[in-house]
Structure formats: structure tokens, C-alpha cells
Design a protein around this nucleic acid. Structure first.
Lengths: 217, 217
DNA sequence: TGGGGTGGTGACAACACGGTCACGGCAGCT
DNA sequence: AGCTGCCGTGACCGTGTTGTCACCACCCCA
């Protein structure tokens, strides 16, 4: 686990670093705000332990910068200011946890572990091929950067073909995957929808038909 | 934001539920461990506020069950046992935060928000998109600098959509996250609330509908 | 050269989905 | 009690979607 400790008092800083290293964490140290920002710009930390009362760039600003980056780094604020109001302010600033000084070292360790425990979100898969990109979670598709306005069935059809990644997909399979099982198996709706989809995709053609076989991107 | 409060003292439980509802959260209540487990089996919560001292199935076991499920639900332990040892134990059990009783209500709210922020994808403390900004902790929203007067449901709806950051959110999901479990699943209330919200947001439209899919900012 | 089979296109009408609105119940406040 | 704002319901309506069908353009093979 990679942790950055930002603390301006040298004694406390080194004590923290040593203690946390003994707990098996990889610790970097920063003694003021600018140093902290420099570190987070270069490295990816699981947790930043942040003293709120820093010389130069204040801890609040470091915190703000961290959360603005939308990175997966968690922030644990650590400070002498321990009124309820301070804590709430710190949390509203975007800190993930808040521990007032004086604190117990084992609790600090437990809280750092609790913050780091949760895995980061998996990146949403986005399909792309031949200048066509498609993001299922955003339900958005584009060709050469130009957004496409696809109807639900057209979208599902394209998604199915892109997911097949170049393999041939038969009409029967498309019917099965995109439409439900109550559909008349002799319907010509695949043909129709495919035609409309191709029209929206434009030139040059992306979807090729394999005679007697099906379709392929 | 969808929250489950697990607390065996009826007075405290209802007081918590009321207070948190006033903060715009959708609250379900459970009065013991088995009830809690039944709830989390059915619903998806952002946060579970869990009293550790429960009759029947103890809070620890509920917590264990939750983290074993590896779901994205965060656990905030709430208990009278407030020694350092208790806190560390709670956190090591898999809780994401630990608040000893007696606690300050505003701090509880702030900590719940902090937990919800680091759901699957980290969410910044203030959301903004397309000229709309929204500050969950202040319960204030504005468009192009002009403040918006949103009702609690409208606010929660907008918050949910902004947090999704462009991804499509289905009506079912909105219903699940913004409303609580007493809601009729076939209700048209999302439609209505969405309509009123859009009217207040004004032109140009911020929320786009994806046919058959849901809504997107 | 003609015919059957396969696949593409356009017109069209049914329909389901989503937006809007008015109404009324309900809770909070004066 | 009366008022006000919130919000869930149901009805209505416009419109985009989509299944069907007729027709055409090929290709392969006799």
C-alpha cells in the first residue's frame, strides 16, 4: 500500500513514517503543501494522510486539488482543530476521513486500511472498430468523433456486432440476442433495422454482409 | 442517496430516519440484524448505518456479511463502545467508518456523505455539468450562477444524474436510489418529478432521455 | 437467358414510450 | 383550522420506433 504523509512537524512526520512502515506500508513524506502536490503529481497513492495546518499552501487546498483530480486517492485529514465544525468542514471539502489530534496510532492504521480496502472502480468498457466507437454505459455511439443518433434496436445491433469483434454473426443469432424469444423467427425486421443502421453509419461501409452467413464489422 | 439505518432503539431509529430524510436521503429502517440482512439482500444501498449492539444477529456479523458480499455498500458503525480498541476492531471487521456514541448529528451526516462520495467511482464534493452546479452538503444548486429552488426529490434526482457523470441512469435505478422501499415499483413519479425538474432547469436542456434506457446529463 | 434464392430499400401504419397537466392527498407551518 | 408546497396518480397526447410488406438488385446455376 502506497501512502503519502503530509506533515510539517519533522518529529511527528518521521515518527508516523516509521510506524506506518512497520505496518508494512510504503511511505513517502512531504513537509508542506507544494511538496505534497509535487508528490501526488508524480506518484499514485492509495491514501494521503494530510495535516490540515500546513505552512505555505494550506491542507485544504491540497485536499481540494486531490479531489478535483478525480483520482482514486483517498484523503485522511489529520489535525489539531477538532471541533465538530472543523470536522464537518474537512469532510465537506472532500476528505474521506477526519481524525483529530491527539489520535491513537492503531486507530490511524485501522482507518488508513479501511480507506485503502475498497478497490477502484473498473473502467467502463468501450467498444470501437473502424472509426466507430460505442460506449454501452453512456448509451452513446459515434463515428469519426461525430455522435450518432441511434434508436434502441439499432444501438443493440451495433453493440452486438462490435462485441463479436470481426466474427460473423448470423441473422438468427442477432434475432436471439437483440430481440426477445417471442419474436417471429421468420421476420424481416433484422434486415430493416440493419438497413436503417447502415444509413446512419454512412460511408465507407462498416458492416459487411456475408452471403448465407450473416454480418461482420 | 439510499441509506439503511440499523438501530434497535425505536426512538433513536426514527429520530435518525427523520433527520436524515430531512437531509434529502432515502431512508429504510431495520431494527435487528436479520431484518438488516433481509434489506441488504433486496436493495442496493449507498451506505448502511449500523449499530454494533443489536439483539439477535450482532452488528459485527451483519458487517461481515456485507463486506463478504463485496458489494459497493459502505458501512458506518455507530456504537456506544468507544474505546480505541473497539474502534479498531470495528474497522478491521470491514467497516468503512466508525462513529462512537454520543455523536453529533451534523458529523454523522458529513461522514455518510463522505462515504457515499467514494462509491464505485469517486464523486467530488460539488458536482457540476453543463452550467449546472450542485453542492450536496449545502443542498444548493444553481444554473449559470442563478440559484435553483429545488424540492428534495428534484434535488436528489439531479444529484443522482450528475454523479453518474454522463452515464445513462435508468428509471428503475433512479427509483431505487432516490426513493425508499415503500414506493410502488410501477409508479410514474419519476416521470413527473423529472418533468418538474426540467422545467426548473430551463433551456437549453441539461437532461437528455435515452429511449428504453433512462436519462443522462 | 431465365428463374430461384438472397439481401437491401422505402413506404406505411400500429404502437409503445415518454412528456405534460390537472387533480387531490398529505404534511408542515402560521 | 386554513394555507402552502410537495409529490404521487391517472389521463391524454405527440412522436419516434419498428414490424410488415412490396419491390428491386444481385448472384449463382441450369
Amino acid at each position: 500500500m502506497r501512502v503519502l504523509v503530509v506533515e510539517d512537524h519533522p518529529r511527528l512526520a518521521t515518527a508516523l513514517a516509521e510506524g506506518l512502515r512497520r505496518e508494512g506500508m510504503a511511505i513517502d513524506l512531504a513537509f508542506d503543501g507544494t511538496e505534497a502536490l509535487a508528490h501526488v503529481a508524480v506518484n499514485r497513492y492509495d491514501v494521503v494522510v494530510l495535516d490540515r495546518d500546513l505552512p505555505g499552501v494550506p491542507g485544504d487546498q491540497v485536499c481540494r486539488a486531490l479531489v478535483d483530480q478525480r483520482c482514486e486517492t483517498r484523503v485522511l485529514m489529520l489535525t489539531a482543530a477538532s471541533t465538530i465544525r472543523d470536522r464537518v468542514e474537512g469532510l465537506e471539502l472532500g476528505a474521506d476521513d477526519y481524525l483529530p489530534k491527539p489520535f491513537d496510532f492503531t486507530e490511524l492504521v485501522a482507518r488508513i486500511r479501511a480507506l485503502a480496502r475498497r478497490a477502484v472502480a473498473p473502467v467502463p468498457p468501450t467498444l470501437s472498430c473502424a472509426g466507430v466507437t460505442l460506449d454501452p454505459s453512456r448509451r452513446a455511439a459515434s463515428r469519426h468523433g461525430r455522435p450518432l443518433e441511434l434508436s434502441p434496436k439499432e444501438f443493440a445491433l451495433l453493440e452486438c456486432l462490435l462485441a463479436a469483434d470481426g466474427r460473423v454473426v448470423s441473422s438468427e443469432e442477432l434475432l436471439e440476442r437483440v430481440w426477445d424469444e417471442t419474436t417471429n423467427p421468420f421476420t424481416g425486421t433484422v434486415k430493416s433495422t440493419m438497413s436503417r443502421l447502415r444509413a446512419k453509419l454512412g460511408e465507407p461501409p462498416v458492416i459487411h454482409t456475408v452471403r448465407e452467413g450473416g454480418y461482420r464489422v
